[in-house]
Design a protein around this nucleic acid. Structure first.
Length: 794
RNA sequence: GCCCGAGUGGCGGAACUGGUAUACGCGCACGACUUAAAAUCGUGUCUCGUAAGGGAUGUGGGUUCGAUUCCCACCUCGGGCACCA
């Protein structure tokens, strides 16, 4: 008997698949298309993570099943390459990021190939490849030309030690991700993308896509749509007024004061009338200095200052109200001013109690009616903010703009930024000596005068390149489009291929990307749709998410904790098939699970059993019968065992087929284990065993391919037809059903399938056990659910 | 505070549309094989009870012939958002 040698088998078939290109997607094929997508991995130096394998295996199973169902499948792979970790590694080691990129790409590719994923390797892409980021830059320029990319002074997170601006995601608990120093707010000019212009559609169009409910909920929560009224409160004795936003216009009669954000322009405009200006100015200064952390600290006491000498008038009842500034009102949301109703709002109440402001209980009115009557309007607001798009970093796509002072003068509205002409794209990232940001917090690109100083593409005068780069969310915002046509030099993808392949049919990824990558890419896609450059409104038809895999100690896997599981070792020791099977069996796919190396042996034993059964079948002379025989048993028994095996086989085909679609991989695996346990006890027919191999193939592609081959098949099992189950065989002719008395199981009886109540009742009442339970009692009710249960109420 | 999700053996977990709770796997115990061990195979493994039988799916109620599943109230844990008016 041959041993199950996973190393030999896995390498053999991985090479074979690659050579025969059996997972190559065909553009424009007449077969129905299926576009399966996983989030391409970020090229970190630590290599492939077992979490990647969870997500990739799931989509791999789905892809392989689709191949077998006759689809033209595209399951592509690429690498997300730009970004901070690579740059930091470059600073630390002095290695060039391009070299690190190359090394990491090779490492990831090698690791992915070892797991045996059915990727179409010919479509591989890398976001840091100039041929790729040419189009990232090009798309950015289209947004710029449409006014969606703009430069604005904004408060950013600043690390005082590193003298560098940080993106929100680079700040962890108010501290610099790199050095741990507490960050402060600093005003800086940044490139922004106007994602808020798409807020309404990003929210509404969620109705039409098949995303997990929690993904939709989280995106909606993040977009933060809220409908309310904008109402003006006139300043007494002045032409100006305070405009407030409220979702509770119906409580307008309960307003007892008005609050402005300390940054509000109106405060400055009313300066001459404010009698306690010194005090007010001091408060505004104090708030400015506060860090984000201090300001949002939990159970922070309410603070504020009254603008003495100022009164606002409630338009609903003409009452005079005191006006305050307080930092609990945010300048960046709504109108930066609120009407305070302590009776109905806990924050207003807390504030009113602290500063002895009155709290009144007035009747409620109709919100829409009152808004109309006081000259206000119904409006919709969003919490979503525009996307801070620039980074003062090296390792990213250069923003392809040139700043020209002369053009800025001639065009007072424009800011003097001229797009790099298409023919000059891509703006290639030049080599630099040091990747450390400059003292001024600018990208190290600013130091390369040869690169920075250029001629203005518009007027030919002296001009300077933009030295900011894009965040790593840029390249990942459209990569799924590039896969459809990865080598195109004229367009980011041809209209023909886009029409054939998009939208992505099924996209699986992590929950952590719900409000970042997933939302950003929907935004880019919608923009491209408006430009008539993509054929669909939404990029992804269906989105699912996998749960995290925690380390054995229940913590997140991290290098510093030293609890990282190395996939290479698992593959070496147990094999890719066992590894894949284990990750699918470990627990519900969408839930967080804990890694347990001890349990891997289970799936391994399972595959050993499969191997043994396969070996036995290949070496044995086949009895030409479609029925099973039980060893050493008489013929009457044979019949019933055979029938029930057919039932089990058909049930398993059904279960596995359906479980794959609902991503219940753990129960699919366990049902196959049940089948194998049964097959072990009997002589299995070759035909039946081959059907079993087919349903196992997406999970454990190598061992099944080998056995399939050993059984005489010349074509790949992946090209065979996915088995169908026979609905008639799902239920046995004879079924064991439970008999309950008053809801408690007392006995079991064997009955024929679909027996009627009239036939079954006398049978039950003849049962010895039932007779003894029934003694002296009367039947109140006899309940029979066909093929399920009997309950007698006495 | 708001929005999701989850509480079932020693552990990971299963249970269709309300129909025999604990499938499958790990671990553990005993047995077979072996000089021995590993591997493998077999048997057992929620709990109380000798048994008949009783009890148990976070807690307390409800609906039902029947509830892990549906309804109400609460507790605990995980994730996301948050002075968002």
């Amino acid at each position: 008997m041959k041993e199950y040698d996973h190393k030999k088998i896995e390498l053999k078939w991985q090479k074979d698949w690659e050579k025969k290109k059996i997972f190559s997607a065909i553009n424009g094929s007449k077969k129905p298309k299926f576009y399966a997508l996983i989030e391409f991995p970020y090229l970190s130096g630590s290599g492939l993570h077992i979490g990647h394998i969870r997500s990739n295996t799931a989509m791999d199973i789905i892809s392989r099943k689709r191949w077998m169902e006759g689809y033209n499948v595209m399951y592509p792979i690429g690498y997300d390459a730009f970004g901070l970790p690579t740059e930091n590694y470059a600073i630390k080691t002095g290695k060039q990021p391009t070299i690190i990129n190359k090394e990491n790409t090779e490492m990831f590719r090698r690791q992915l190939k070892k797991i045996g994923f059915a990727f179409d390797w010919s479509r591989e892409l890398n976001t840091a490849n100039p041929a790729y980021y040419k189009w990232t830059q090009w798309i950015f320029l289209q947004m710029f030309k449409k006014g969606l990319a703009y430069k604005q002074k904004t408060m950013i997170n600043w690390c005082p030690k590193d003298k560098i601006g940080l993106a929100n995601e680079e700040v962890v608990n108010g501290k610099c991700e790199r050095c741990g120093t507490e960050t402060i707010k600093k005003e800086k000019e940044q490139w922004m993308l106007a994602i808020t212009k798409y807020a309404e559609r990003l929210d509404k169009d969620l109705d039409d896509v098949d995303y997990l409910e929690r993904i939709k909920a989280q995106q909606r929560n993040w977009i933060g749509k809220s409908e309310g009224s904008e109402i003006e409160f006139k300043v007494k004795g002045d032409s100006q007024s305070v405009r407030v936003f409220t979702t509770r216009a119906d409580t307008i009669l309960g307003v007892t004061y008005v609050v402005l954000a300390p940054e509000s322009v109106l405060v400055q405009n009313l300066k001459s009338q404010i009698t306690n200006w010194n005090e007010v100015e001091k408060y505004i200064e104090k708030v400015k200095k506060e860090s984000e952390q201090e300001r949002t600290k939990e159970d922070k006491e309410k603070t504020g200052v009254e603008l003495k000498g100022i009164k606002a008038i409630n338009p609903a009842n003409k009452e005079e109200l005191p006006v305050w500034i307080a930092d609990y009102v945010l300048a960046s949301y709504g109108t930066g001013a609120v009407m305070a109703v302590p009776q109905h709002d806990s924050r207003d109440k807390e504030f009113a109690e602290k500063f002895n402001l009155s709290i009144i209980d007035r009747p409620l009115v109709d919100a829409e009616e009152i808004t109309k009557r006081v000259g206000g309007k119904m409006v919709t607001k969003y919490k979503l903010r525009d996307w801070i798009f620039s980074r003062q970093r090296y390792w990213g796509e250069p923003i392809p703009l040139i700043h020209c002072d002369r053009c800025a003068l001639n065009d007072p509205d424009g800011q003097g930024y001229i797009p790099v002409p298409d023919k000059d794209l891509p703006v290639v990232l030049p080599k630099v000596k040091s990747y450390t940001p400059t003292d001024t917090g600018e990208s190290p690109l600013a130091n390369i005068s040869k690169w920075v100083n250029v001629k203005c593409p518009k007027c030919g005068g002296k001009a300077r390149r933009e030295t900011d780069t894009m965040p790593n969310w840029a390249g990942s915002s459209w990569y799924y489009l590039r896969y459809t046509d990865p080598k195109n030099k004229k367009e980011f993808a041809s209209a023909k291929n886009l029409k054939y392949w998009t939208p992505v049919d099924w996209y699986n990824g992590g929950m952590e990307h719900t409000t970042l990558h997933l939302l950003y890419s929907r935004f880019w896609h919608k923009f491209l749709y408006d430009m008539k450059l993509v054929p669909t409104k939404e990029p992804y038809k269906k989105r699912t998410a996998h749960g995290m895999i925690l380390a054995e100690d229940g913590e997140k896997m991290s290098k510093s904790r030293g609890n990282v599981v190395n996939p290479d070792e698992i593959v070496k020791l147990y094999g890719a098939d066992t590894f894949r099977l284990y990750e699918m069996f470990i627990g519900p796919f969408d839930q967080t699970v804990t890694w347990n190396t001890n349990s891997i042996i289970g799936p391994r034993r399972f595959l050993e059993k499969v191997w043994k059964i396969g070996e036995k079948i290949t070496t044995q002379k086949q009895i030409n019968s479609s029925r099973l025989t039980l060893k050493g048993s008489d013929t009457t028994k044979n019949f019933s065992v055979s029938a029930s095996f057919q039932t089990l086989l058909n049930k398993t085909i059904k279960k596995v087929s359906e479980d794959i679609e609902s991503m219940s991989f753990n129960t699919a695996v366990s049902s196959m284990m049940v089948l194998v346990n049964e097959m072990e006890k009997q002589d299995v027919d070759k035909k039946d065993f081959k059907i079993f191999l087919q349903i196992l193939a997406p999970f454990a592609p190598h061992i099944t391919e080998e056995l399939w081959n050993m059984l005489g098949e010349k074509q790949s099992i992946n090209k065979s037809k996915w088995p169908k189950w026979d609905e008639k065989k799902i239920i046995d002719d004879k079924i064991k059903i439970a008999v309950q008395i008053n809801g408690k199981v007392r006995t079991e009886i064997m009955v024929s399938k679909d027996m009627s109540e009239g036939e079954i009742k006398p049978l039950v009442l003849k049962d010895q056990k039932i007779i003894s339970w029934m003694e002296g009692k009367e039947i109140k009710k006899f309940i029979y659910v066909p093929n399920r249960i009997i309950n007698i109420v006495i």
